[in-house]
Design a protein around this nucleic acid. Structure first.
Lengths: 107, 107
DNA sequence: TTATCATGTAACCATACGGTTACACATTAT
DNA sequence: ATAATGTGTAACCGTATGGTTACATGATAA
């Protein structure tokens, strides 16, 4: 079951992990764990597992180190879903604009 | 605790509820429940509660009926987060393009 | 070869989640 | 007044989630 990206990004810690990889480039599992002093290393490791399940991470083993890199591709699924809502609220903005203009004509 | 939109859209049933409201316009709680034969009415009601908590729904009482309407505004929070990733993969595509062109020069 | 390091996993725990049935409460219909 | 309708909530249940500590494994360092 390749977990959905919607579920993967629901957790704020997981979003921060993705942000770190996006901003800092590839990082080792230990680097990531060290970035979350409030959570134990295995705790972070479990989040990495979820992100891997959603295919949001690529991993490369270099000796005993494991480097993680962001693969944003599955996020396009979320983006696709959101696009329909952008259209929706664009229409609502258009409607609002008309109402405001209408009102302006009366003042 | 105004639940985050990230969490609200993590569940597929809740996404379908939002889709219904987006496509069909305002609907009564009962209409929505009827759209999910596999889930009991209180089950759907609990999903509505979560969506309300994320401020994704506006409700209007009309007699004993309760009409729900989509308010997509909080989704912009998700959109904002995603935009940074679009930039990121755009850059990766650019890089890929260059690599491919480079390769073409050698063949 | 032995110790150390980097990492994942297993087992466990408390809480959240998604579902159910039974109930409560207004509001409309009879 | 009483019945029926529309809706939310409480209590409960099994499973998932996010966290922990202890352990296993593979790769470098001494």
């Amino acid at each position: 079951m390749p977990a959905s990206p919607f579920h993967a990004i629901a957790d704020p810690t997981r979003r921060r992990i993705l942000d770190l990889l996006r901003l800092a480039g590839p990082l080792r599992a230990g680097d990531l764990a060290a970035s979350f002093p409030a959570i134990s290393r295995p705790g972070v490791s479990k989040h990495l597992r979820v992100l891997r399940g959603a295919r949001l991470l690529r991993q490369e083993r270099r000796g005993r180190e494991l480097w993680y890199q962001l693969d944003p591709q599955p996020l396009s699924q979320v983006e696709q879903w959101l696009i329909e809502y952008e259209k929706f609220w664009q229409e609502r903005l258009e409607a609002l604009k008309k109402v405001v203009e209408q009102k302006a004509n009366f003042e």
